[in-house]
């Protein structure tokens, strides 16, 4: 009985892991199979020969790299905007008292509760009237509007966890408000900022609907819509190219995660949690 328990537990865990990881694995395997092996029945689990031709075709014959660059600019800019605005907003909501503060916080969250489909037409009109339609900057603004509410609330709860006296102590010790923020609040808030940045980056990187509606010129199309329109047509789906594209689209997220993971675990000492 004693020895059986861990075995069963392990079995269950690994089954779950395999179930979750299977599509990912299949995606990678498919992207490495030669065209001839793709639709073979029964499917081959381990490709008979490995080829990088799909990756090569994607990079040399399609605008994949341009889409990729657009997506990076889009997600990074959105993240920077959201983190800066969210941090300032959360600071204001937590540290100052003014009329309508709670109402404002609730209203901001309310927009988050509405489905994007409802918001997208007014948003499109606004962006168009600003002369920003079909530009990457317009899309960045749109992404900022839908990531900001949640980021604000996330950062707000992190900010609420920082004792006010910490900042007061810095003020008494001679720091300016900005100085106190930089020396004391920011290091304490770092875990919150990282979570928010991660969340925003993923949201923006994977976003499809806004990109589809707000942008239609090739030069500013991000990966999500770009890859879709390029490889999926009514008559044909370029499966191997699509899988190769999917693998490469996942890479930045995996890299960002891996980087921040190590930061989240090792770097928290610098963030003030018991080190």
């Amino acid at each position: 009985m004693k020895t059986l328990r861990p075995i069963v537990l392990n079995l269950v865990t690994w089954t779950l892991v395999l179930l979750i990881a299977f599509p990912l694995l299949w995606m990678i395997i498919t992207s490495l199979k030669p065209q001839s092996e793709l639709f073979r029945i029964p499917p081959t689990w381990i490709p008979e020969s490995i080829t990088f031709e799909h990756y090569w075709r994607l990079l040399s014959e399609t605008p994949f790299l341009r889409y990729f660059r657009n997506s990076v600019v889009l997600a990074v800019s959105t993240t920077v905007f959201v983190v800066i605005l969210g941090t300032l907003g959360a600071y204001s909501l937590v540290r100052f008292t003014y009329r309508g503060r709670e109402t404002m916080a609730m209203l901001v969250l309310f927009t988050y509760l509405l489905p994007s489909v409802v918001l997208i037409i007014p948003l499109y009109l606004m962006i168009a009237s600003l002369g920003l339609s079909n530009s990457l900057f317009g899309l960045i603004l749109a992404h900022t509007t839908f990531a900001l509410p949640y980021a604000l609330w996330l950062l707000r709860s992190f900010m609420e966890g920082i004792p006010e006296d910490l900042e007061n102590a810095a003020l008494v010790d001679g720091a300016s408000r900005m100085g106190a923020f930089k020396d004391v609040i920011f290091p304490q808030l770092l875990p919150g900022i990282i979570s928010t940045a991660l969340f925003t980056f993923i949201l923006s990187w994977n976003e499809y609907l806004y990109a589809l509606v707000l942008v239609n010129s090739e030069s500013v199309t991000p990966l999500t819509t770009g890859v879709m329109s390029m490889l999926i047509s009514a008559f044909n789906i370029e499966w191997s190219l699509l899988m190769a594209a999917s693998v490469m689209m996942s890479l930045p997220l995996i890299v960002v995660f891996a980087f921040l993971q190590s930061y989240l675990t090792s770097g928290f000492g610098a963030g003030g949690v018991k080190g």
């Binding site: 006296d165 910490l166 007061n168 102590a169 610098a270 003030g272």
Partner: peptide, 11 residues
């Protein structure tokens, strides 16, 4: 000032 909560900078 010495704060009731000490308010030491944790990092």
């Amino acid at each position: 000032m010495v704060f009731q909560s000490y308010a030491l900078y944790p990092h």
